[in-house]
Write a protein that binds this DNA or RNA. Structure first.
Length: 873
RNA sequence: GCCCCAGUGGCGAAAUGGUAGACGCGGCAGACUCAAAAUCUGUUGCUCGAGAGAGCGUGCUGGUUCGAGUCCGGCCUGGGGCACCA
């Protein structure tokens, strides 16, 4: 009997050392076997890993270990998304250099990951803040610039007028800077962008080919790209205008509703609005109000809809003598369409709200099917459905799409101020990717500004442009900009004094190609080695949080295309398979000053179901907030190291796989960790006890009934667990393994029949062998230890996945539920191969069916083979 | 505000349109023990019933279907994203 409890504290470091010494998880680029690239989204080195990482990396590790056992050459690397804002915040708050802070965090977190027993190829580790990584990113920036995919334009930023610095949206709280408390202003800066819109259509249509992506992610990306077919319509001013143009161009997807138009609205920073503001102080004041709202679309859209009547009027294109007022409105985006719209209140809710507020006319022009044109009116709910045009002159009686065509055709052939009055246009919601950041801790943009030569790239032989080590963080603004010497440089073209670009790149750029760099991180000459990239890409299974569904994944899809266009890779789509795990969520806590505090700093008391919290340090009260995704900013993270130190990595791994479906959020609780650990010990006991029973077992020819039953369970489990892991249904695989362990436990509980039955002994030996191999991807240390107990040579980590015998997976008989009128009333056990006629006959012979029919013939019998029988009486 | 997703026992959940609640946690009862822990066995959706059994039940509401947790329409609640958090 295995008297000793399994001790993960001894076993886990031992196996981790053996794996490392044997180089078991390193991947060679010349491995001839079929490739499988599994990747989890790499972490930001915030300081410590959290349970979200444990969940994410455990899932990826199960896939990696499983695919390795299935005979694939598996690439499973890890790195660090190491540039970013928190390092700079730490520099300001704790007087630590961002590089020191970041590399110390990386060292600590690498240690935490290694303790998890992940089968990673650490030889390929990269950190995006390392010049050996970002130099290649700078090379690609120059390539993109030369290919016309990187360019400068004016864009808005959140400006903190007190700290004199650009704020991230996250740093704007209720319209004020998080540090200074000053009201935030919009400010315009000339900044670098990637031309992602060059691929709008392609990024959209190519989504259809990503059949191993979740539908919801593809749908979100589709909506984000936002292709819409509409019409640009030119309105003529009905009087003098301060603008240089005599017309105002708007974009609409509903030209059919033009007869219902009651106003035009333009963005606050539309050229016309600026022109009006220059001569009308009230208009200028309104524009200033708009600029104080920051740049976040969410804030903009939820703010009260406000407008300012410019007093200008435009002529209705179809109604002679009719003019419409032109408003400046805070909900019109300059970035979308032409930055101007016409409002049709009856058929657009936002326009209706606006019209009611400013007393504008509401004329319905689309009549819902079946409504009476004499009585149909719009009160507080706009009608945006299909219908028939009315109140619309030559459009009356037409359907919506026919009216669209009619208006488009007519305006296309009308000329205003020398242009066609209407132009069909495909419009995308997607905007170019603003990558400029006025920050220190990011990849420097390798450009030089020369008064004579303009903006020129840093010559490739001068790359990388290194960040200066001696930046200061004690004053606001961009440290690169006020560094005494860094930005002063000779123009590479004419040699005259010039200045470096001081913007650095958005950290999304870093994470848009790291998966490619992993294929050959040793190449010092170029970002990629084509043979290696072609060999390993695309990533076969990418796993990460749903919060990255749009931005990171869309940027990566763009970047891969841009790299293809500049010759760095040969494919379009970087991720063939995507799985979005749910988040790990946790309660939030705030101290008396309203600052977030971490769970580790709190004690939660539960008195008769009423939960209260206080600070560990001084017992002061802490407010328990809502359950939210674990985030650095809200400090509601849990340190997995404590869990692993107490229970072992295998317990932690098993727990995060077992409790919730992997794509759903899981609320972290310590309840259940003990249950997971019980199973660790149970497997250990089963193997220990079982090993004594199977000594000298050999496969017998004719299995006894007990042996056959156990063998069937074994092979069904092998088939089911493999199936579940393929689909990333880890929680189902875990449930299967619990059932399997229960079956083995029942066999071992009565040793006498096992001793007396050689075929049962053999079946038990096979079951124990399978149990260890099936459990190995999830609890690798325990599995290695058990493998040794079973007296097996080598590592289970290098042992093939067991193969299910199809003859043992399928039963000869099936038990069908028998429904009468859709309610289950009986069961029918019958040969699996029984014909439909035989099933009918057997069903009608059942007592419950005869009683229900009471001699009458059934109206209908539905037989779903091997599933169910339904008798309609 | 807009886009996307989720909602099933006391709890985490399972269920190619086909027996709702597998499996686990917790609870209850029992075995082992001087005792406890550990372990093992049984039981556990709700209501009625001594029982056999019957009825109800997957956020709400209406529909499609022989049959709906699953598909469709309308809501409610919670979560994610909204372009400078990563």
């Amino acid at each position: 009997m295995a008297a000793e409890r399994y001790n993960p504290r001894e076993a886990e470091p031992k196996w981790q050392t053996i794996w490392a010494q044997g180089d078991v998880f390193s991947t060679r680029n010349d491995d001839p076997r079929p490739k499988y690239y599994v990747l989890e989204m790499f972490p930001y080195p915030s300081g410590r890993i959290h349970m979200g990482h444990v969940r994410n990396y455990t899932m990826g590790d199960v896939v990696a270990r499983y695919k390795r056992a299935k005979g694939f050459a598996v690439l499973h690397p890890m790195g660090w998304d190491a540039f970013g804002l928190p390092a700079e915040n730490a520099a300001m708050e704790k007087k630590v250099h961002p590089a020191k802070w970041t590399y110390e965090n990386i060292d600590y977190m690498r240690g935490q990951l290694k303790v998890m027993g992940l089968s990673l190829d650490w030889k390929r580790e990269i950190a995006t803040c390392d010049p050996s990584y970002y130099r290649h990113q700078q090379k690609m920036f120059v390539d993109f610039f030369k290919a016309g995919l990187a360019y400068r334009r004016t864009s808005k930023v959140n400006w903190d007028p007190v700290d004199m610095t650009v704020l991230a949206n996250e740093q704007v709280v209720d319209g004020r800077g998080w540090r200074s408390g000053a009201l935030v202003e919009q400010r315009e800066l000339v900044q670098w962008n990637f031309r992602i819109t060059a691929f709008s259509d392609e990024l959209l249509t190519s989504l259809d080919s990503l059949d191993r992506w979740p539908d919801k992610v593809r749908l979100m990306q589709r909506n984000w790209i936002g292709k819409s077919v509409g019409l640009e319509v030119r309105f003529e001013f009905a009087g003098p205008t301060p603008a240089s143009d005599t017309t105002l161009e708007i974009f609409t997807t509903r030209p059919d509703t033009l007869f219902g138009a009651s106003f035009l609205a333009i963005a606050a920073d539309h050229p016309l609005a600026r022109a009006v503001g220059a001569v009308d102080p009230a208009a200028a004041a309104f524009q200033d109000d708009c600029r104080r709202m920051g740049t976040s679309v969410a804030v903009l859209e939820t703010a009260e809809k406000l407008g300012y009547d410019t007093g200008l009027r435009v002529k209705h294109p179809f109604v002679a003598g009719k003019t419409l007022p032109v408003f400046i409105a805070n909900f019109i985006l300059m970035d979308y369409g032409t930055g101007a719209i016409f409002g049709c209140p009856a058929h657009d809710q936002r326009d209706l709200d606006f019209a009611r507020k400013y007393g504008l006319e509401v004329t319905p022009v689309v009549l819902p099917t079946g409504a009476d044109p004499a009585t149909f009116t719009v009160a507080d709910v706009a009608f945006d459905g299909e219908g028939t045009l009315f109140n619309s002159d030559f459009l009356d009686g037409l359907a919506v799409d026919a009216a669209f065509e009619t208006v488009a055709a007519r305006l296309e052939s009308t000329t205003v101020a020398g242009h066609p009055q209407g132009r069909r246009r495909v419009n995308f919601r997607l905007r170019d990717w603003l990558i400029s950041r006025q920050r220190y801790w990011g990849c420097p943009i390798p450009m030089i500004h020369c008064d004579d030569c303009g903006t020129v790239p840093v010559p490739v032989e001068q790359l990388p442009v290194l960040l200066p080590d001696d930046a200061t963080f004690d004053r606001p603004g961009n440290p690169l900009d006020h560094h005494p010497t860094w930005k002063h440089v000779a123009c590479p073209v004419c040699g005259k004094p010039a200045r470096r670009e001081t913007d650095t790149m958005d950290t999304f750029v870093d994470s848009s190609w790291y998966y490619t760099r992993f294929t050959d991180p040793w190449n010092t000459e170029a970002p990629t080695t084509r043979a290696a990239a072609d060999r390993w890409l695309p990533v076969d299974q990418y796993i990460g949080g749903i919060e990255h569904a749009i931005l990171h994944l869309l940027y990566s899809r763009f970047f891969t295309r841009a790299m293809k266009a500049t010759g760095h890779v040969g494919l379009d789509e970087p991720f063939a398979g995507l799985f979005t795990q749910g988040m790990v969520v946790h309660e939030t806590y705030k101290n008396a000053e309203g600052h977030w505090v971490s769970p580790a700093e709190c004690v939660v008391d539960d008195v008769d179901g009423v939960r209260t919290a206080r600070l560990k340090a001084d017992g002061s009260p802490v407010a328990i907030g809502s359950i939210e995704k674990m985030s650095k900013s809200k400090k509601n993270t849990v340190d997995p190291s404590d869990i692993i130190a107490t229970w072992g990595a295998d317990t932690a791994r098993w727990f995060v796989l077992s409790d919730s479906p992997p794509d759903r959020d899981v609320i972290w609780t310590e309840a259940g960790v003990e249950g997971a650990h019980r199973f660790v010990q149970r497997v250990w006991r089963l193997i220990g006890d079982g090993a004594e029973l199977i000594a000298g077992a050999h496969t017998g020819a004719d299995r006894s009934p007990a042996a056959l039953a156990l063998a069937k369970i074994t092979h069904k489990t092998i088939a089911a667990v493999g199936d579940d892991v393929e689909k990333l249904g880890f929680n189902r695989a875990v449930a299967r393994l619990y059932e399997f362990a229960n079956a083995i436990g029942r066999t071992i509980a009565t040793p006498e029949p096992v001793a007396a039955d050689a075929t049962l002994t053999a079946a038990l030996a096979e079951a124990l062998d399978a149990l260890v191999r099936l459990v190995a991807p999830m609890m690798p240390h325990l599995a290695e230890e058990c493998w040794t107990v079973l007296g097996r040579d080598g590592l289970v980590s290098e042992t093939p996945w067991p193969v299910a015998d199809p003859a043992l997976v399928v039963d000869d008989t099936v038990t069908l539920p028998v429904q009468i009128n859709g309610k289950k009333r009986a069961e029918l056990t019958i040969a699996r191969a029984a014909s439909e006629a035989e099933v009918r006959e057997a069903t009608l012979a059942l007592d419950a069916v005869r009683a229900a029919l009471d001699g009458r013939p059934p109206k209908k019998i539905i037989v779903v083979p091997q599933r169910i029988v339904n008798v309609v009486a």
